[in-house]
């Protein structure tokens, strides 16, 4: 059996004030195989973004028993100790390498051109001068429909273009795991479909495990994603069980 790109177990996430706006999310087990495509669906506020931010090592959980990330073909590291101890900043570099994350909105720095922003990942990963990497970057930009807009700044880009530039930043480096929060929000139907298909192709061609949060379950399903619901009840204390 192929080694998982990401294995997470025994996670409890909690945000908000205790007894007032507290929200908790349990993640007993999550295992993502290389090339696997998962679309997490659920109503707004059910914790999809929280789940992705935790997986992107941007949020410290209340508890985590196991968080094993494949950082290279022959290297799998259990990061649970660092995460539990709150040392997630020390793991930030992983987001420039094996673990890509595309935030839900506005993910373009205002003082950079679209090209400079999207290629920041390449520079951080030390691949900025690699012609193969640059060619892949340009190819992805064309596929995302932003190739002609790379010299524009954020204020010159439409909302949909910003979203696709943020996606390009997330895809700019080959990933083991790519997390995208609502990647088709703000896009027209055709662009949304193209983005879903590109993410799916990335998983198929490069073996990247792609996990997205989306409200567009049909498009995700048609693009080859396995749709998994993230449910939450009417009560604040209801724990969610997400098992893949």
């Amino acid at each position: 059996m192929t080694a998982a790109a990401l294995e997470v177990e025994g996670v409890r996430l909690r945000v908000g004030e205790v007894g007032v706006s507290e929200f908790a999310l349990d993640l007993p087990i999550l295992r993502l195989q290389p090339g696997e495509r998962i679309a997490v669906v659920g109503p707004s506020g059910c914790g999809k973004s929280m789940l992705l931010e935790f997986l992107a090592l941007l949020m410290r959980p209340e508890r985590v028993d196991r968080f094993v990330l494949a950082t290279a073909d022959d290297d799998r590291r259990d990061l649970a100790g660092d995460i539990a101890a709150g040392r997630i900043d020390a793991l930030a570099h992983l987001r420039a390498g094996p673990l890509g994350y595309v935030p839900q909105s506005g993910g373009v720095l205002p003082f950079l051109t679209a090209r400079a922003h999207a290629s920041s990942g390449l520079r951080l990963a030390g691949h900025a001068g690699n012609p193969v990497a640059r060619a892949r970057f340009d190819r992805l930009a064309e596929r995302l429909g932003v190739g002609a807009h790379l010299d524009k700044t954020r204020e010159q880009l439409s909302g949909g273009q910003r979203k696709r530039v943020a996606l390009l930043a997330g895809m700019s480096v080959p990933r083991r795991v790519l997390l995208a929060d609502e990647p088709t929000t703000g896009l027209d139907a055709a662009s949304g479909t193209a983005v879903m298909e590109l993410l799916s192709r990335l998983a198929a061609d490069e073996g990247t495990a792609v996990l997205i949060a989306t409200h567009d379950a049909d498009t995700a399903y048609r693009a080859g994603f396995a749709v998994r619901p993230l449910e939450h009840g009417a009560f604040w204390h209801e724990a969610l069980q997400v098992v893949f």
């Binding site: 420039a96 691949h127 990497a133 990247t208």
Partner: peptide
């Protein structure tokens, strides 16, 4: 598996220069 470009091992991360 992702093909990559030889990984980031041994590569000096230019985070400060980028900042």
């Amino acid at each position: 598996m992702p093909r990559g470009y030889g990984g980031t091992k041994g590569v000096r991360r230019p985070g400060v220069a980028l900042a």
